[in-house]
């Protein structure tokens, strides 16, 4: 975590007796200052740190860890809110039901396809946009400002805009007879477009942070040595940016995998355009089938864990949160 040398707090606590009382007073715990200290000060520091982290940790664990365990439990039961008396433990029956269902696999394939295609496009466009935001000679601030609009806008709002653009009655993209949002492939393309539009700027910002790490001298030196623009990009910039690219890819892949808002608005999942999140929602909130819904939830959780695991293997030590991260 610490990127710039030893932790300042650590040095303060360990080195001088002068700093000690001040530190304690600042913590406001009114404790007597232990002059014997190092260990006492250390312990106080730990206690303070845990106290400070406690509220955040408690909320995060209460709202995620416990429910996911509960989800596992629900997934092993037949539990349909429409027939509450019929609830019983059924073991893995729900998993068999889901995994042998064509709907699940169609949704899974659709989700994977949307994820791969949109993230690939975003990476390329995001890189271009990052270069523009980083290098533009004219209107750099303007470009950065407008790029933030897709990032900040409510996804549902943007989705409705795309929906109306391709709507048979209102859309400026459609003639009187075409209704692309009623056909599978055109619908999927529009979903990918909506997704790419919304998230490319975010990708670009993450990549721009990586670009800022590329030393200008290195680029100039490469240019002197006769490297052309493309070679400078592939041989100098990309290697330096690799950690930033992997972070951006990880964030976006997992984010794309849980796509929901755009599909909900654009097609409601009709004509085989449901994502896994969408069919889970339908089973759960529309169908009120908690058992099947929970089973799908667990399966999505496992898929995401697998994707994250693969990425972290790729990251190696460059993973966010590891000690070497951010250093070069």
């Amino acid at each position: 975590m610490t990127t710039q040398g030893p932790n300042p707090a650590e040095t303060a606590a360990g080195s001088t007796a002068v700093a000690e009382p001040a530190e304690d007073a600042k913590r406001g715990n009114g404790k007597k200052n232990g002059k014997s200290a190092l260990s006492e000060g250390k312990r106080a520091e730990r206690r303070l740190a845990w106290l400070l982290c406690a509220p955040a940790v408690i909320v995060m664990v209460a709202v995620t860890a416990w429910p996911i365990i509960y989800s596992l439990w629900l997934s092993l039961q037949r539990y349909d809110l429409r027939f509450p008396d019929d609830t019983e433990f059924v073991g893995l029956d729900n998993y068999v039901a889901v995994l042998s269902s064509g709907y699940w696999w169609t949704a899974f394939g659709v989700t994977l396809a949307i994820t791969v295609v949109s993230v690939a496009i975003e990476l390329v466009l995001g890189m271009v946009l990052a270069l523009v935001m980083h290098r533009a000679l004219v209107g750099r601030g303007l470009v950065r400002t407008v790029s933030l609009i897709p990032y900040g806008i409510v996804t549902v709002v943007a989705a409705f805009s795309w929906y109306f653009a391709w709507d048979q009655v209102y859309g400026y993209f459609t003639g009187p007879d075409d209704a692309p949002l009623t056909q599978t492939i055109p619908s999927l393309l529009i979903i990918v477009l909506a997704e790419v539009w919304k998230t490319t700027p975010f990708m670009a910002l993450l990549l721009m942070a990586g670009l800022a790490l590329v030393p200008d001298d290195l680029l100039k030196a490469a240019a002197m040595d006769g490297a052309n623009a493309w070679q400078r990009f592939t041989k100098v910039m990309l290697p330096v940016m690799k950690p930033a690219i992997l972070v951006a890819l990880l964030f976006r892949t997992l984010d794309a995998f849980r796509i929901f808002d755009n599909i909900f608005v654009l097609t409601k999942g009709q004509n085989d355009t449901s994502s896994v999140s969408m069919i889970t929602y339908n089973n759960l909130i529309k169908g009120l089938n908690l058992g099947i819904g929970a089973t799908m939830s667990v399966l999505i959780f496992i898929s995401v864990a697998i994707i994250a695991f693969v990425f972290i293997k790729l990251f190696g030590t460059a993973a966010p949160g590891s000690d070497t991260e951010g250093r070069r």
């Binding site: 989800s71 964030f251 939830s297 959780f301």
Partner: peptide, 13 residues
């Protein structure tokens, strides 16, 4: 990175 949909069933309940 948590798939939020995974929490919907238990949170709902």
């Amino acid at each position: 990175m948590f798939p939020q949909i995974s929490l919907i069933s238990p949170l709902f309940e």
